Computed example of a mutant assay.
Amino acid sequence: MIIGITKEIKANENRVSCTPEGVKEFVKRGHTVFVEKGAGDGSGFPDKEYESQGAKILKTPEELYRNSEMIYKVKEIFPEEYKYLREGLIVFTYIHSNAHRDQTDALLEKKVTAIAYEDVTDKNGEFPLLKPMSEIAGKGGFIAALNFSQKIHGGKGILLARVHGIRTPEVTIIGAGNSGIGAAELSSAFGNKVTILDIDINKLERAKEILPPNVELLYSNEQNLIKCLKRTDVLMNCILWPKWRKDHLVSRDMLKLMKRESLIVDVACDEAGAIETCRSTSHDDPVYIEEGIMHYCVDNIPAAFPQTSTYSLCNATLPYALEIANKGVKKALTDNKYLRRGLTSYDGKLTLEETGKKQNRPYTSPEKVLGIE
């Protein structure tokens, strides 16, 4: 198979889907790899490193898309890239189709086979291609909280750390998954009073085993959440909100319970999702104020740490990309039900149930479009 590795065009997106070592894994199995010129620069991988592992450098995205059978990337397809899509092309990336209706339209119109990292599962029902970025996003989210709690960056001027003789700051984390644990590891290491809320007792038990005693573990219900909102200095949302839900865990009215000038960091960044007042921001313009509360809702936090993120992402996605390349996309999807759950579009049909519900459009099961029902 011919694999194309693109240069990301999202603002401040310095990650790349594949390391030079990853390219070698494709090449030694007989596949051809094209890398767009400068694709790895932001992550510290110059073109010559890719060439040394057998890749060929192409100068333009048009050339890359035209000559590749599978596009292997990091972020969703942007409007500038729609013109490169064509029938039969495979796209393997983070797609977030429910949030980008125009992208979904383009994938369906061009009959692209699109597989979304974020929807691939494993045998435990977890999301292995989200996990590495989730941990980095959680830790990066706390680093952002450290930054935007500073007065010089518009915060109320508190240091999120234990300081002798002063009230210890409080950090509330919604969700004990990978991003929540990552956020808790850093925030507790700084000596803050940390509270994690979750409805999954097993996740709370796991958190108890790996986190220090200054982390309080609470079952997530309205009463406990309200108590935390009233006392916290930083609220971090680390749960993915079901795409079709119209309600919110933290409503606009509930923000009035929080201390003035406190901070919300929405790591999950589902627009108007778990936190009603969340809307996506960028690294160039990361914060805004709603109801007197600063919000940090950058939707690609790991891009601030591109080399770490690229290694981690490639380690997770490469086995699936190799499976697609080795078997062909239809057989790979047929053989691997966990990969199949990431199928977003196929032969002009929407195959992701959540996006169908969110966008109120018809969808067909992956099994039906592949003829394996």
Rank of each mutant, 00 (worst) to 15 (best):
E170I: 12
A316H: 03
S282M: 05
I264V: 15
G154P: 02
E69C: 02
W244F: 13
S280F: 00
L350R: 11
I239S: 02
F78H: 12
A176S: 13
L218V: 01
F127M: 14
K327H: 11
A321C: 07
V250E: 05
Y346R: 08
G44K: 11
T113V: 15
Q150H: 12
L218M: 14
G140D: 09
I199T: 15
T308P: 01
E13F: 07
L240Y: 14
K28D: 13
V250H: 09
L333I: 10
G38M: 04
I136C: 09
L146Y: 01
K48M: 01
G165M: 10
P366G: 09
D247Y: 03
A99N: 10
P213Q: 14
T232E: 05
Y320P: 01
P79C: 02
E25R: 15
V163A: 13
S179F: 08
G175C: 05
V16M: 06
R162W: 03
R206A: 12
V287G: 03
F26Y: 15
L218G: 00
T121H: 06
C269E: 03
T104M: 14
A304Y: 04
N98P: 00
N14F: 15
E290Y: 00
T344A: 02
V91D: 01
K28Y: 00
K37N: 12
G273F: 04
F34A: 04
F305H: 08
L263H: 10
K327R: 15
G182H: 05
F305A: 11
E170A: 12
V35E: 08
T113K: 06
H248D: 08
E109T: 11
I210V: 15
L339P: 04
V74E: 04
P286Q: 11
E323G: 01
F92V: 01
T93G: 04
S52C: 00
E21F: 05
Y50A: 09
Y346N: 05
A106G: 03
K327S: 13
R231D: 06
V171G: 10
V112S: 10
P61L: 03
E126H: 12
P20R: 10
L159M: 15
E353T: 01
E185T: 15
N221I: 03
G40C: 12
A207G: 09
S220Y: 00
I136H: 06
E291V: 05
L352V: 00
D102Q: 14
C269Q: 02
L255M: 15
N300V: 07
E62T: 04
F78R: 08
F148Q: 02
C269R: 03
K75W: 00
L85I: 09
